[in-house]
């Protein structure tokens, strides 16, 4: 609990994350927040869905702790979105795999993310479904209501829309500044 504001909407952590009191974060021990990330109300983050298949490179994250969800800096998770590590069968056993999100990632309200990797400066609109093991590279815009099919790899600077999601255009160079989420972070008061 924060000392100065006992009943604000957000709890601010030491690294500047603003986490709503009404978010539903499960398995907090397995989630890494890079700092300055905003998590709004009713967001579900499934940190409990850990990797059970032993990894060869010993990638257990910092200090040997298993990591289910890794999130970079200046990310913004709007109301009621859901982050969930994807799972699949591999060599006869089922395992979940970590969900990695880089910096300056915006995820719109009610979107469900089961991707393997979301690159930096990615903007995902409202009511999107990002399928299992999708890889989204940097500077991608996913428009509202898109259903990205499982295992899709979205190249950098793409605009993706539709059901199923397809690349419908490119992000122009002038637009790139719009992906910076520092101002949004600052605008979130307690």
């Amino acid at each position: 609990m924060s000392k100065k504001a006992p009943k604000g909407e957000y709890i601010e952590t030491d690294t500047g994350n603003k986490v709503s009191r009404r978010s539903q974060i499960i398995g907090t021990a397995n989630i890494i927040l890079g700092g300055k990330t905003v998590i709004q109300a009713e967001v579900i983050i499934r940190g409990d869905l850990l990797r059970t298949y032993p990894s060869s490179s010993g990638d257990g994250g910092k200090g040997g702790h298993p990591v289910a969800v890794a999130i970079g800096r200046y990310c913004f998770f709007a109301r009621a979105c859901d982050l969930r590590p994807p799972g699949k069968m591999y060599k006869g056993t089922f395992s979940h795999y970590p969900l990695k999100i880089a910096d300056h990632v915006f995820i719109g309200p009610s979107s469900i993310i089961e991707a393997a990797l979301v690159g930096s400066h990615v903007n995902i609109g409202a009511n999107c479904i990002i399928g299992k093991f999708v890889i989204i590279k940097d500077f991608v815009r996913v428009l509202n209501g898109t259903v990205v099919p499982p295992n899709m790899v979205i190249p950098s600077f793409s605009v993706v829309a539709g059901i199923p999601g397809r690349v419908v255009g490119e992000v122009s160079e002038g637009e790139v500044d719009g992906f910076d989420l520092r101002d949004i972070y600052r605008s979130i008061g307690n």
């Binding site: 409990d48 850990l50 059970t52 056993t93 089922f94 395992s95």
Partner: peptide
């Protein structure tokens, strides 16, 4: 596959 997934989830979900 669903059965395997259940086995794993049994370990993960308290």
């Amino acid at each position: 596959m669903v059965a395997r997934q259940v086995e794993i989830l049994r370990k993960l979900i308290p």
